[in-house]
């Protein structure tokens, strides 16, 4: 798209010199995005990496302290616990979300053509994370929440959804599944649209049922889209913060202290921006590795449809 060959007769005097060069104009168009990318992404990342080798409280100049922050990180049980808690959250969140989204997407495609029904699935995504967390905080409150009132009314014991260490992470994972499942389903739904109807027709002629077609046609042909969706959602899931900050603040004890929340707390609560940067670099490394593995394992770059 960048270079187009002029087929007009040599009237402008430019076509004589070969294909028209649009590089400068293209650069000009890319520039705004590039400036944003450099200022808001590349520079902060590089500076963050630099800060991870310093002692820095943001108000006085950073002091270089070598690998101190990384040594401390390796020895910090709260960091390792945060990593474990985050991983547990990602597994629960992504596991339920992907399966549920896949089911919803397939139902949207195979069972209904109604736009408003498809639209409803997306509505939770229109609610902000903070609002969703607040609403669920009220619904699930141990004493006053309507959720627990109903549980108590049918004769069961109240459940401390957000104030018990065993329940906290599953509850937070569930809140975020509720919010994101529609969006994920929509992405998968878009992928489903690319599978030609003829393949299903062929399947039906061969006598395959819906379940068999789902396993042998839908899932294999959906793989590239599915892996893209997984990469996006896993990276997002690792960065869970707002729901935790609103609903549990890392508690009870450390049971929901996910990495992002711990980083925030160390930086803005305890003024240790150097150590917080080191942990952010660790999170960056984890995400790079996870994404790379996912990309490789799911062969996201090739499609079976070709």
């Amino acid at each position: 798209m960048v270079t187009t060959t002029s087929i007009r007769p040599a009237k402008t005097g430019r076509a004589r010199n070969g294909p028209r060069d649009d590089t400068r104009l293209a650069l000009l168009f890319i520039l705004p995005a590039l400036v944003g990318f450099a200022v808001f992404l590349v520079w902060p990342t590089l500076r963050g990496i630099y800060l991870s080798f310093t002692k820095f409280n943001l108000l006085t100049p950073p002091e270089f302290n070598g690998l101190d922050n990384y040594v401390r990180m390796v020895q910090d049980p709260v960091f390792w616990n945060a990593l474990k808690v985050t991983l547990y959250y990602v597994i629960l969140n992504i596991g339920f979300q992907t399966v549920l989204a896949l089911v919803i997407a397939v139902m949207m495609q195979r069972l209904t053509q109604r736009t408003w029904l498809r639209g409803i699935v997306l509505t939770p995504f229109l609610v902000s994370n903070v609002v969703a967390a607040m609403v669920f905080l009220w619904i699930l409150d141990y004493q006053l929440g309507i959720g627990n009132t109903i549980i108590a009314a049918i004769g069961l014991d109240r459940i401390p959804f957000l104030s018990d260490s065993a329940w906290a992470i599953p509850t937070i994972a569930f809140i975020n599944v509720w919010r994101h499942v529609g969006y994920t389903a929509l992405l998968i739904f878009a992928g489903l649209q690319t599978i030609p109807e003829t393949v299903y027709e062929a399947g039906r002629i061969d006598g395959a049922g819906e379940v068999r077609m789902f396993r042998s046609i839908t899932v294999p042909l959906l793989r590239p889209i599915l892996s893209l969706v997984l990469i996006i959602t896993v990276v997002g899931s690792f960065q869970v913060f707002d729901t935790v900050a609103i609903a549990t603040r890392g508690g009870p004890v450390d049971s929901s202290r996910v990495l992002q929340y711990y980083i925030y707390d160390v930086a803005f609560g305890r003024f240790q921006f150097g150590y917080a940067s080191a942990m952010s670099v660790a999170l960056l490394a984890v995400l790079v590795i996870v994404t790379f593995l996912q990309y490789r394992l799911t062969r996201a770059e090739s499609s079976d449809l070709a």
Binding site: S163, G251, P252
Partner: peptide, 9 residues
């Protein structure tokens, strides 16, 4: 208990 008063909130 911790749960009854609303945990972190």
């Amino acid at each position: 208990s911790y749960e009854e008063i609303g945990g972190a909130n």
